[in-house]
Design a protein around this nucleic acid. Structure first.
Lengths: 140, 140, 140, 140
DNA sequence: GTGGTCTAGACCACG
DNA sequence: GTGGTCTAGACCACT
């Protein structure tokens, strides 16, 4: 218990989760996205534990249920494995492509590209911006 | 009267707006996105009129207030001009980049790229998919 | 008729009324305000005729009824005198203060000053801006 | 529960919102203006909570959607922050000037000054009246 | 319990 | 006939 608390605390501090409470994006979605980004940029690695629901909620100053929902969604997408004994563990190796993920990707990204196009952003600029983001994940 | 009705009807049909009523994305957001995509892919051109809120609501089978909200958001983003005399008109030429649109773009796209990265999608694949979408807009 | 049309045309051109059709401010209000501003800045003088309702509507490209409403409001406030024979004539000499105009002025201006205050505009700045506007009217 | 109700009630009463139901100014605009005036005159301070939309609607005797619209407009103008956890909070410290607020200010105030000028109000009188309003905000 | 969304119906200002 | 406003009631997501 005691040791777990310390570890949770350290990880909780290291995570540096930043929630925008006035955002229209639900807090649980923001948390989920930032954990996925943490996996992508290497600050969260395969096998590492996430802070407990309780600890995370305390660190960020949000409700237990909100953290719980974020974790459950991550578990449903195989980003983490939730085990009563060891808590929530990163499972990056198993996040291989879903069969219909390509469709979801296109659906998610199409409206963003459409707006960028309408606002005059050129293909090179879009590609460059995306490569910048991707490179940061790759280097980590 | 008669001719106007036909024109409204044709525009309504030509728009081919497809709402997914079971989606978690609000109807007004879906409508807004599809109109932006319509501007991007050339099915809606500078100066063309959108159906009236009532007509559009009837065409899609939703409430006029929902259409009204979508139109108001498009107006706030300068995608359309709501002119008291002639209704809602496409304003694509003036949708130049906002000063802080680059930040918004990065915020919108980062979580999508992060998830794609985690799911093993490679940079070439991401770039290719985005170019495909962009090309369709450009050709139109 | 013929001469009146020419005069109306010239005045209509000289007025340089600029309507923002996408503004939330009704067209008739914009027209009324611009005529009052025209009286204030000296481009419309005591005894001068306004273009006929028909001419004004044609010049601006708006509905007859809209011009009619603006003129009627100006007449109700004694800014113009509408006479069937000579048309609408500026009546600046008789626009003396209404008994309860002070209250109306305070009501109109209070929310604007409140917002300016909240946005950090200082008293000197507000006063200076207002004096600038006033001076232009006075010089004319 | 009980205490929260009392607090809500007191805030609702303290606000002293006065809606003129026969005014041509929309209720949501009147509410928005009075909240801005409340921030200006110090009756609403940075960090204080506004009543919930439901509570405010009940207090004033209007529909909650009308309150919602007023709050949304205040949020869009950064006068309040709508935080999912704690409701709507005054954000006066961050209401610094927008880049184009000067233009908006001039546009808002010009027709009022023009009318005052035409009605014979002198510059000293206008300045004095505005200073009176401003002083009340400053003293608070 | 909060705000967000959607529907519905009514009235009005505007053009 | 148009959009804007207001009311009303319902359900849901979020916390």
């Amino acid at each position: 218990m005691y040791r777990t608390d310390i570890i949770d605390y350290l990880i909780g501090v290291l995570m540096l989760v930043k929630i925008d409470f006035s955002s229209e994006i639900p807090i649980y979605t923001q948390l989920k996205q930032q954990i996925i980004e943490g996996i992508a940029d290497g600050s969260l690695n395969e096998g590492e534990s996430l802070p407990s629901v309780r600890q995370m909620a305390e660190d960020i100053g949000i409700n237990l249920h909100t953290v719980n929902k974020a974790y459950a969604l991550l578990r449903d997408d195989n980003f983490i494995i939730m085990d009563r004994r060891v808590g929530s563990v990163i499972n990056s190796k198993h996040n291989m492509k879903l069969e219909d993920y390509d469709d979801k990707f296109a659906e998610d990204i199409k409206p963003i590209i459409a707006e960028a196009f309408c606002r005059g952003m050129r293909e090179e600029e879009i590609t460059r911006k995306i490569q910048e983001i991707y490179k940061k994940f790759l280097e980590a």
